[in-house]
Nucleic acid binder design. Structure first.
Lengths: 350, 350
DNA sequence: CGTATTACTTATAACGTTACAAATGTCGGA
DNA sequence: TCCGACATTTGTAACGTTATAAGTAATACG
């Protein structure tokens, strides 16, 4: 597995082997070597085999910089990672899934962090201007996302995690948050809850709309009242949510059901209610969207609907690869279906 | 913020501006332009200013590929990210810290995932062979880590998260796990615990030794018995730890104190004990190493010693930058000091 | 007034690769 | 024997940048 020692012929002993080295050894022209390595059918098969053999023997590896300079292709995919607070291990899972999708290709993964409070368009512009990648992936999409507009204008391949509401099509992967919210309300009603509250992400994100719509549809259908906390969102810090929950828990018509589209918001709420002397199962229930096993360990009886982030990463990778191959569509649009399999009711009257 | 429109002179209207474009506009030679952009003192200041002005006006951005090809420098730092299970949000925090350290430089961050079960040397070899970066950062160091040996042999700049036991020096950032374990034992004793158990990482990691040494030192000093679970490690899956805890909790001399160098192991153990009818505070206590606010929400009374992963990322970045600047040392070696500030005892007899 | 020195600027070549157009050799058919 | 068609290989130039060495003009010095 270690780098093989270079051959000891005078011409190519010291420095690292290039196509020129192979050309000298085989007696072929550099052009021929290049095309043989690319698997060009116009090169005799015997030659291709010989070149590849020599290449392997001397430990030739193509120079990315040179290929990039010549072809204009970076062979890099950029993931813009923003500080998701609400989902435990979001970044890791997404990266892992994406890496799997790219593993069989010759694309590399480049992660550009989106700093908290920074303008989301910045990293995108930077990558496009400096041609740091051939394709971009980002999340926390907005209905009329500036980044989508920018990338489309520049005909730069991309895939988003989350939909937009532009008239035109683009590649995305999203989770059916509408269904998640709708089903969550029903589940909480099954448990006898009527004052059902939903924790929403900031309203400028597209998935705010989806969650809200699913929630409102169920609320109206069931004739319930609508509870949406003021000043609290999925992006609020845990202590902030905790404080709010503690306060609201002590009010007369405190919510008795919570829809938490993220794990951390649930933890803060449960803590707040506990502090106010209210217990889960007795005084309230919650449905949580989770993407790790963590909640199951905290309390095995929590109703949770899982979102497979690693799968999302893999799908994003696959969709982006297709987009880079066919930049003018058709665009792959994938919606992850929430896996609604709640345990039977009677066992969970905790 | 949008890319400025290129000038409309016939010579350089369509394609993206290069140094050649600037040369044509200013009437200078390309070489002069190049050196002016580099801030070479030998170029008249007036010229430098003029070149930079034009460069900005036409929206010139240097071509990374060309620079890389010519100079051999990639201006990339590679973080090899392995699937840490025990720390919530490890990857995100490390990346964020690292990104901050690199923000002011012209280095980019490249994340190469280490697949579960894959040979750790593989991504390192790959990066070095293909010259994908100028420096490497990795974690989960082993006492005689193959990667350290390999990188040293190839004189490739790197910084590790965790120490090794090689005779020679290299740059690293580590957490004082020895102190963490030692202080944890003392804390649990303060709470009246005597059967103190430590959850250790797999023994091939260096921080296994450090934790073990700190633990053993305290155990011997205090004349306690030593409890180390067989077949369970920090890397075990949560359900596995849960099962083990549930079983052990029912034994006669079940541990009454736990040292958890990761959040997830604590959650699984607490769950196991709970399932066996044993409560935290009453039947056992734990000291947890945590790197997020999550545990505080789950139970505000948990004794936890925090490890600042984001700071670790920033330190790793800073140390690597120094190493790349002075490849032959001196090597920056940073140890993060655990912040041992437990709440007063009486308030926490839960 | 000629030469050394300083302050700049520049021509040339190269990094490793690939696109393009052109060249070479081989073979079957007229 | 000659021609075209085919299979295969090759020379040249270029991608955008920078290192090297060499150039020019102006100034200082004796």
């Amino acid at each position: 597995m270690l780098t093989p020692k270079p051959l000891n012929s005078p011409a190519h002993s010291t420095s690292k082997p290039t196509q020129k080295t192979i050309a000298e050894i085989t007696g072929l022209a550099v052009t021929t070597v290049s095309r043989a390595l690319q698997g060009d059918e116009k090169i005799a098969q015997a030659t291709r085999l010989r070149v590849n053999k020599v290449a392997e023997d001397i430990g030739y590896v193509p120079d990315h910089a040179a290929q990039r300079l010549r072809t204009g292709k970076t062979k890099v995919v950029s993931l813009i990672l923003d500080p998701h607070k609400e989902i435990l291990g979001f970044g890791n899972s997404l990266i892992t899934g994406l890496a799997h999708a790219l593993a069989e290709t010759d694309y590399h993964l480049n992660v550009t962090p989106q700093f908290l409070g920074g303008d989301p368009i910045e990293p995108v512009e930077y990558i496009v201007r400096n041609k740091l990648a051939d394709g971009i992936i980002f999340s926390r999409t907005r209905p009329f996302d500036e980044r989508v507009r920018f990338l489309r204008e520049h005909s730069f391949p991309f895939t988003t995690h989350g939909r937009t509401e532009f008239g035109y099509q683009h590649s995305y992967v999203d989770y059916d948050n509408e269904k998640f919210a709708y089903e969550s309300v029903l589940r909480l009603m099954q448990k006898g809850r009527r004052r059902i509250c939903v924790i929403l992400p900031p309203s400028h994100f597209t998935f705010h709309q989806h969650l809200n719509y699913g929630y409102m549809r169920a609320i109206r259908q069931e004739g319930l009242e609508c509870y949406k906390p003021e000043g609290i969102s999925l992006d609020s810090d845990m202590p902030e949510i905790f404080e709010w929950a503690q306060t609201i828990a002590r009010t007369a018509d405190a919510p008795d059901g919570f829809i938490c589209p993220g794990e951390t918001s649930f933890l803060a709420i449960a803590n707040g209610y506990r502090q106010a002397g209210k217990g889960r199962g007795r005084d309230f229930n919650a449905v949580v969207k989770s993407s790790s096993q963590t909640l199951h360990q905290i309390d095995p009886h929590i109703d949770n609907i899982s979102e497979d982030i690693q799968e999302a990463g893999a799908l994003l990778g696959a969709n982006l690869l297709k987009t880079m191959l066919h930049p003018d569509g058709p665009f792959e649009q994938t919606i992850q279906d929430p896996d609604i399999t709640f345990p039977a009711l009677k066992a969970y009257q905790d």
